[in-house]
């Protein structure tokens, strides 16, 4: 059976374009607004959703996603509720790939096997766990693959040679190329460095490759989708949430719509190339 992730990449390819993946933190700024935002993302042309599992100490994230994570936790988000949100999303959107992204500790505390069972039942397609390199595969990667989930690997500008082979050994779904050495939402990479790295990755795997970290503008998204098989945008999206919360801390009900407009500009730019 071909999974949702593979189908999505194949379909985009047959339309001659890359895919657009969008990250939001589950429960940011509230469960209701986040659920509505997910719908708006699909409506606006996002091909794939990365739903962040909020963690208090996101080591690889910049200020924007740190803040998103803390907003969600403060609003009462838990892993249990994130899984419920994923299951409800899947009921509304049977075909859109849904990836859970985050750090290991909340999963470890929830219980690995219980988490995997719930994630599979919820219709989650894959996992991106930032702080689990191949050295720690027994912790989650191996059992996740056994449960039928794709374990999606991040490769970075420091992932070269034999390291790249090691990282891609059990990779599933697609390869997420982190185009900068750095945390989310800080700097952007130049086309030449992306080009060279993507060529290396293609030499080591047949999986589709997407580019992320530091993509903000429609032009950057379009360029990334030409250089690789798609673009992932996160910080720029959650910043829209941050900018639409008033001084009393009340989020604007227009957040889903505003994010939809922005994402639609990205999707159009990608489709136009």
């Amino acid at each position: 059976m071909t999974g949702r992730i593979t189908k999505t990449f194949e379909q985009a390819k047959s339309n001659g374009r890359g895919i657009l993946g969008v990250f939001v933190s589950a429960g940011d700024p509230s469960e209701e607004i986040c659920a509505a935002t997910l719908d708006a993302l699909v409506e606006a042309g996002a091909d794939m959703i990365e739903l962040g599992m909020p963690f208090s100490d996101p080591m690889a994230d910049g200020p924007a996603i740190q803040a998103a994570s803390l907003r969600a936790i403060a609003a009462g988000m838990t892993l249990e509720k994130t899984l419920k949100m994923a299951a409800e999303f899947r009921e509304r959107h049977p075909d859109t790939p849904l990836i859970l992204m985050g750090y290991f500790n909340p999963i470890y505390m929830y219980g690995r096997d219980a988490f995997l069972a719930r994630a599979v039942a919820a219709g989650v397609d894959g996992l991106i766990i930032v702080d689990l390199p191949p050295e720690e595969d027994v912790e989650l990667c191996d059992p996740a693959i056994a449960a039928g989930l794709d374990f999606i690997r991040l490769t970075t500008p420091t992932t070269k040679g034999t390291r790249l082979t090691r990282v891609l050994e059990k990779a599933g779904g697609f390869v997420y190329y982190v185009s900068i050495a750095g945390i989310t939402g800080t700097k952007s990479a130049g086309a030449d460095s992306i080009k060279a790295a993507i060529a290396d990755i293609r030499g080591a795997t047949d999986l589709p490759v997407v580019t992320g970290f530091g993509i903000r503008t429609p032009e950057q998204a379009a360029e990334a989708s030409i250089l690789s098989d798609g673009a992932i945008v996160g910080s720029a999206v959650v910043e829209i949430i941050a900018n639409n919360i008033d001084e009393a801390g009340t989020p604007s009900p227009e957040i889903p719509q505003k994010i939809g407009q922005y994402v639609s500009s990205l999707a159009k730019a990608i489709a136009a190339k």
Binding site: P133, T158, R163, G182
Partner: peptide, 20 residues
């Protein structure tokens, strides 16, 4: 050799840091 003391320790870091 995996950096474990019993169940503790290990190398739970982002891939960017692994080569380092």
């Amino acid at each position: 050799e995996d950096g474990r003391f019993g169940i503790h320790g290990g190398r739970f870091v982002a891939e960017t840091l692994m080569p380092l």
